[in-house]
Amino acid sequence: MTFLRSIFARREAGILVMIVIFCLAVGLHKPQFLTGQSLRIILLLTPLIMIGAMAQMLVLVARHVDLSIGSMLGFSAMVVGLMYRELPDIYWLVGFPVAVLTGAALGLGNGLLVTIFKLPSIIVTLGTLSLYRGLTFIISDARQINRSVIPTELKAMSRTSPIFEIPWIILIAFGIALMTYVVARHTQLGRQIYALGSNPDAAPLRGIDVTKVTLIVFVLAGALSGLAGILYASRWGFVNPSNTGAGFEFQVIAAVVIGGVSINGGVGTVMGTVLGVLLLGCVAAALPLLGIPGSTQNAIYGAVILIALLIDRSVRQRGLASMSRA
């Protein structure tokens, strides 16, 4: 009984129920929503957000926030695109380390500003959101990287599959989620991130190098954004200085907050985040099917964030109440 209750009391169960109810409700209107084909559509909508959400989850758990994720994605994608354009003979896989390292360098910039000057991460990353976007324009001379420049092998990763007809980018995204799970649950670094976010004052007393952990979190966020950047080039086949990654941070924050990651730090699971991403994917896939114009998507994301915040608060309060009763 207590086992059952502990399952249902978990945040993940709540999101799962929301996904099921939502899919059933849509399926009742449009039966074709409950087919394998639409599952494929949902999954194809999610890989970039999934990777960004893992990055944002780690940052939020450490009681920080990173608003520059979309700009880091755009900058890394642009660096890779320029490389492919200027060096057409280069082996296409080189793009991956280049993108990840570029992102990591930008993330390091955020981390250094936050740790050296003891600044609130939200304002720093609001600044770098604009700064990195501006740099993307500068290095690209405000011109788009066209489809013909992106290597065919890279573009094929979004369509071809090594196994079960699941495209490469979906496998990569779930692979990243799995790795984040391992890091968060089973490594010293992961536990230190949670400890730091739960109580930043107590963390150094427990021997945690706060500066180091904070830096690593921001570098990881940058590296994952960089990976998402090259996958963007794979998925869409172009890199545009103003569109690529713009507003991405908001979708990511929506997914993470729905997934039950607390904005107060220290709380959040990979499972919940994955479910949050899938719920957003379901919503995004259902809208065109229901004949709702795509322009409503942002309003729905915003509303979902606000509702998730309220749910998060009521869950936390009930948790506190039950603790004080015990």
């Binding site: 907050v257 409503t296 942002n298 994301y301 509303a303 606000l306």
Partner: peptide, 13 residues
């Protein structure tokens, strides 16, 4: 941040 997205989204609607 939530209302930033929400208000802008409603304007888009």
């Amino acid at each position: 941040i939530g209302t930033l997205i929400f208000f802008r989204g409603l304007a888009q609607v």
